[in-house]
Amino acid sequence: MGILGWIVLGLIAGAIAKAVMPGRDPGGIIVTMLLGVVGAILGGFIGSALFGTGIGSFFDLSTWLLAILGSLIVLAIYHVVTSRGRRVHG
Results as ranks from 00 to 15, higher is better:
46 I>V: 13
3 I>N: 07
70 G>F: 00
66 L>Q: 09
82 T>M: 06
58 F>N: 13
49 A>I: 05
81 V>W: 06
34 L>T: 12
63 T>V: 08
27 G>R: 12
62 S>K: 14
34 L>A: 11
74 V>E: 02
78 Y>H: 12
68 I>N: 00
35 L>M: 10
31 V>D: 13
29 I>T: 08
15 A>N: 06
9 L>Y: 02
32 T>D: 15
70 G>H: 02
54 G>F: 02
82 T>K: 10
77 I>R: 04
4 L>F: 11
8 V>P: 00
57 S>D: 15
65 L>R: 09
31 V>I: 11
19 A>Q: 12
6 W>H: 12
87 R>N: 14
49 A>Q: 05
47 G>D: 09
46 I>K: 04
26 P>W: 11
17 A>R: 00
56 G>R: 07
50 L>D: 05
76 A>C: 04
75 L>E: 07
45 F>K: 12
39 G>I: 04
29 I>N: 07
26 P>C: 05
21 M>W: 10
13 A>V: 03
62 S>T: 13
39 G>C: 07
46 I>H: 04
11 L>T: 08
63 T>F: 08
75 L>H: 09
20 V>N: 00
51 F>V: 07
25 D>I: 06
73 I>M: 10
36 G>P: 04
77 I>Q: 04
53 T>N: 10
12 I>G: 01
82 T>P: 01
32 T>H: 14
61 L>K: 07
41 I>H: 05
12 I>M: 04
52 G>S: 09
54 G>S: 14
86 R>H: 15
61 L>H: 07
7 I>C: 08
36 G>F: 03
73 I>E: 03
82 T>S: 08
15 A>F: 06
52 G>W: 09
20 V>P: 00
43 G>R: 00
44 G>Y: 00
47 G>F: 02
72 L>W: 01
40 A>S: 13
76 A>Q: 11
45 F>S: 10
55 I>Y: 01
74 V>A: 10
44 G>S: 12
89 H>N: 12
65 L>S: 13
89 H>A: 11
24 R>N: 12
74 V>L: 08
23 G>A: 10
84 R>L: 08
61 L>A: 13
